[in-house]
Design a protein around this nucleic acid. Structure first.
Lengths: 174, 174
DNA sequence: ATTTACATGTAAGACGTTACATGATTCT
DNA sequence: AGAATCATGTAACGTCTTACATGTAAAT
């Protein structure tokens, strides 16, 4: 059921076509929270439109249809948002891998941790880079609060990986 | 393909039955990294066993079969681990909700942020509580490095939510 | 004796990915 | 003229959840 709310939330932020939403998923949302391909998005737009939660507000070249959220849709989104889930869907391949570091030999574990550290630094920088624009208007569904969360997350990942490397070095000689 | 490696990783940590693995997913892994029900686990164990990546090492009451990872399985797991994915699967309902805080009225957003803060504190405490045992032996697939990551993650969540509440209060009056 | 926990399995339907399919508009 | 981007759609296949189904062993 989350795809439904991902789409509603993105449209609540800014109207857009299926094509636009596909890009927003690819750019931001899909990296951190939820992913969807266009093959899932277009049917979902039809469904939501049929239920009156979104509607076509403009048509453009190549059959482009721009959707916006309706009042009914906004209410549905808010109701969902107000209800904090006891057991929400969480699936994270990177976190999964980090559980099994013990299965690697120290040299391989170290190399992997370097990648976690590097990726953390890069992603944090990427967020800092777009932050100035966020104060003007939300970008691709990325508001100030979410940006801060993302930045803190990736800085934490970077620092944790460095700490973990230190731990390994102390155990197996620097 | 990640379920496969979640199972291999858990068995690499400690042998267990389908029932045991179901509990490990429920207790730790499913909350942070990957989830699976028994209805998915049992068929997966058969598949992995058929491929020679795991094998039955003990049988017990009620048809219980304890599996352990084989050398072939350990190699497969290590190969997967060494390969850091460019675009791994990430799906997080909690993070998704946090992207759309702007859709709520300030009072509702504040209430939700309080829940994020509280949940962060509780989960961080839960990890600290089991940490002493981790130094003796890995517990439910939860090694020291992963525990530290989890603790830092939830402390970050708590602190971010408090920061976000401050931001809202400054915008809309305390 | 009854309840709880242990233990495994299958089936239907929902959700998600990959591949197939088509065409218009814009840029170089 | 050709390439890249924009734009939408469907089908087959794989994964995941929910529900159905069954039985044993241990604890109260």
């Amino acid at each position: 059921m989350s795809l439904r709310y991902a789409v509603l939330g993105l449209l609540a932020n800014e109207p857009g076509s299926g094509y636009d939403l596909t890009q927003r998923f690819d750019a931001i949302l899909g990296r951190h929270a939820w992913h969807a391909q266009h093959s899932q998005i277009y049917p979902e737009l039809k469904r939501l439109s049929g239920e009156g939660l979104i509607s076509v507000v403009a048509e453009g070249p190549r059959g482009r249809r721009t959707y916006d959220i309706t009042e009914a849709g906004r209410n549905d989104l808010r109701t969902w948002m107000r209800n904090y889930p006891e057991a929400g869907v969480v699936r994270n391949e990177y976190a999964l891998r980090l559980f099994f570091l013990g299965a690697l030999e120290p040299a391989d574990a170290r190399a992997l941790l370097e990648k976690y550290s590097q990726a953390g630094e890069e992603q944090a920088q990427a967020i800092h880079a777009i932050r100035p624009e966020l104060d003007q208007r939300p970008l691709l569904g990325f508001g100030r609060l979410a940006a801060e969360f993302g930045a803190r997350y990736f800085e934490m990942q970077r620092d944790w990986a460095q700490w973990a490397i230190d731990q390994l070095d102390h155990e197996h000689g620097p």
